[in-house]
C-alpha cells in the first residue's frame, strides 16, 4: 500500500562502537605495563593480567557456586521488589487518597540508604539468606515503586479519554491502560533497582555470608590472595553486566512500542 511507510531501525555500524573497545584495550595495556614494568614494592598486591586470568580460571567452579548462592538471594529479593513495587506504585500513583496517605511515608523511607538495615536484618531474621533477601528487597523496592507511581500519575490524558470512551471500569483501566502506560517508568526503576540489588547483595555478603560473590572477594582479601580477589571483582562485574544486559533485552522486547 502506498500509505505504508518503512521505519528503518538499522543503526549505522562501522567505526561507531570502536571507541568503547579502544578504552578496554588501553586499560588492559596499562594494566599489563604497570604491573610488569614498574618497580613495585609489593608485587603480590598488583597481579599481572596473566596471573589474574589464571586465578579466574582456577576459581571458576568456586565462583559459579558462589554465583548460584548469590542468586538465591538476589532473584527472590529483586523479583519480590519488582512485583510489589510496580503494583503498589501503580495503585499509589493513580488512586488519590492512597497517594496522599502513602506519599509522606515514602518521602521519608525511600532516601534511607538500605545498607544501614543490614546489621539489624541479620540480627532479626532467622537465617542470613532471609535477612539478605529482605535487604535486597528494600533496596530494589523504592526505585521501582517511585518510578511506577510517577508513571501511573502521569498517564497521558488521551489514554484516559480512550478508556472512558471504551467504557472501562476502574480495574480494567488500571490493568489495560495504566499498567502498560507506566511500563517505561517501571523498567527505568527496575534498572536502578537491579544495580542497587547487586550492591546490597555483595555488601550483605561481606557482613555475614559463608559463600557468594561478595564473600569470595572478602575471603581472598582476608588471606591476601590478591590475584583471586581481583579475579572475583572482575567476575562480579561481568555477572552484573550480564544481568543488566538481560534486563535491557527484556525491556526492548516488552517496550517494542515505545518510539
Amino acid at each position: 500500500m502506498t500509505e505504508q511507510q518503512h521505519y528503518s531501525a538499522s543503526h549505522k555500524k562501522g567505526f561507531k562502537g570502536f571507541e568503547g573497545v579502544l578504552l578496554f584495550v588501553v586499560l588492559g595495556l596499562s594494566w599489563q605495563l604497570t604491573t610488569t614494568m614498574l618497580p613495585l614494592s609489593n608485587t603480590s598486591l598488583y597481579p599481572t593480567p596473566a596471573v589474574t586470568f589464571k586465578a579466574l580460571l582456577d576459581s571458576l567452579p568456586e565462583l559459579l557456586k558462589g554465583t548460584w548462592s548469590s542468586f538465591l538471594i538476589l532473584v527472590p529479593g529483586y523479583l519480590l521488589a519488582v512485583v510489589l513495587g510496580a503494583l503498589w506504585g501503580i495503585v499509589a500513583g493513580s488512586v488519590g487518597w492512597i497517594h496522599r496517605a502513602f506519599d509522606p511515608f515514602a518521602k521519608v523511607a525511600a532516601p534511607i540508604p538500605p545498607t544501614v538495615y543490614i546489621p539489624y536484618a541479620i540480627a532479626l531474621m532467622p537465617t542470613f539468606r532471609v535477612s539478605a533477601i529482605l535487604v535486597v528487597f528494600i533496596g530494589a523496592f523504592w526505585p521501582v515503586f517511585v518510578n511506577a507511581a510517577a508513571g501511573a500519575a502521569s498517564v497521558p490524558l488521551h489514554y484516559r479519554d480512550n478508556a472512558g470512551i471504551l467504557g472501562f471500569g476502574r480495574f480494567e483501566y488500571m490493568r489495560r491502560v495504566v499498567f502498560p502506560a507506566a511500563l517505561p517508568n517501571i523498567f527505568s526503576g527496575m534498572a536502578v533497582g537491579l544495580a542497587l540489588a547487586f550492591i546490597l547483595l555483595t555488601v550483605a555478603e561481606l557482613f555475614g555470608a559463608n559463600q557468594g560473590l561478595g564473600r569470595f572477594v572478602q575471603y581472598y582479601a582476608d588471606y591476601a590472595d590478591y590475584p583471586r580477589m581481583v579475579a572475583g571483582i572482575l567476575y562480579t562485574g561481568m555477572v552484573t553486566f550480564a544481568a543488566m544486559a538481560l534486563l535491557d533485552f527484556v525491556k526492548r522486547r516488552v517496550l517494542f512500542w515505545v518510539r
Partner: peptide, 29 residues
C-alpha cells in the same frame, strides 16, 4: 454524565493504544 460506549470518538491522532496491535485495539471495543 460521563463517557459511554453509546458515543464513539475518533480523536485527531491518538485513538489507539500503542502497545496493542490493531486487532487487539478493536477487540477491546
Amino acid at each position: 454524565t460521563g463517557p459511554n460506549i453509546t458515543r464513539g470518538v475518533v480523536f485527531q491522532d491518538y485513538s489507539l493504544f500503542p502497545w496493542l496491535n490493531l486487532q487487539d485495539n478493536l477487540a477491546l471495543a
